[in-house]
Design a protein around this nucleic acid. Structure first.
Length: 254
DNA sequence: ATGGCTATGTAGCATAGA
């Protein structure tokens, strides 16, 4: 089984890229973020025609998440239980024996802004919920755009970014609390190339200049980690015409 | 270099992303 995550930055614009990538990579499960599409306009028929079941929770203009799966999905849950949030940032579903959580964690805008505090509160609720999910599901995978670069090696210019949103202490501490629940950073289970990133700014040729950040992650429970044989960032779609600013990352469980 | 790009909603720019 291959599970993947990709912030598509508008599913409407990126649908051709998504369909090409599904055809090429043949992932079993794909988590999408920033679909920016209300449910009534979700392109479910195109995705089903490509051989995937799909569960989605979206809104106009902002946010929006979806889970695609070749196998049937059950127990679909949108949003964090008990946490009131207008923004469509989470959907979870079970595929075979694996619990999949797809998350678009808030950006936070700037340290100590209103949105930053929303991000920290959101992460607190997320952590509480995941602790509960871990008790119920031995095989748990939490995929998505975390909007946190966990360590300096995940940042192209750590000095320039020091203390800023995406790398600030409080955000990284929140990320480490997820790890402390007994979730592993799938990407770091394996040796990886230096300057491995999942997001590059559209401006200033950042992708070509390798000026990126690793902010999209696949966190997995110990039982899944024991089964994981590979975890890779797929750079190819970021080089396509009119790309998302994020590129997919996937993990394999034979 | 406090800009630089892209997407959306909506009709000339504002907001948001990261």
């Amino acid at each position: 089984m291959i599970i993947a995550t990709w912030n598509v930055n508008s599913l409407k614009v990126r649908l051709p890229h998504l369909l090409d990538w599904l055809q090429q990579r043949q992932p079993d499960v794909v988590c999408l973020q920033e679909t920016k599409t209300e449910d009534a306009k979700f392109p479910a028929d195109d995705i089903r025609a490509a051989g995937y079941e799909v569960a989605f929770s979206g809104q106009k203009t902002y946010n929006g998440v979806a889970i695609l799966s070749k196998k049937p999905v059950t127990d679909v849950q949108a949003g964090i239980p008990g946490f009131a949030d207008e923004q469509k940032r989470v959907i979870a579903a079970t595929v075979e024996d694996v619990r999949i959580v797809c998350a678009y964690i808030p950006n936070g805008q700037a340290v100590d802004s209103e949105k930053y505090h929303y991000k920290l509160g959101w992460l607190e609720a997320f952590e509480r919920w995941l602790a509960d999910e871990l008790k119920r599901h031995a095989q748990l995978a939490v995929l998505g755009d975390y909007n946190i670069a966990p360590a300096d090696e995940d940042v192209h210019d750590p000095k320039a970014w020091a203390g800023q949103v995406l790398v600030s202490e409080r955000e990284r501490a929140a990320f480490q609390r997820l790890i402390a629940l007994e979730l592993r950073d799938g990407f770091r289970l394996f040796e990886q190339a230096e300057k491995s990133y999942t997001w590059w700014d559209y401006r200033m040729n950042a992708f070509k200049r390798k000026m990126g950040m690793r902010i999209d992650h696949i966190l997995i429970s110990p039982e899944l980690a024991a089964r994981c044989t590979r975890c890779q960032i797929d750079l190819e779609p970021r080089g396509w015409e009119r790309p998302s600013d994020h590129t997919p990352i996937w993990a394999e469980f034979p």
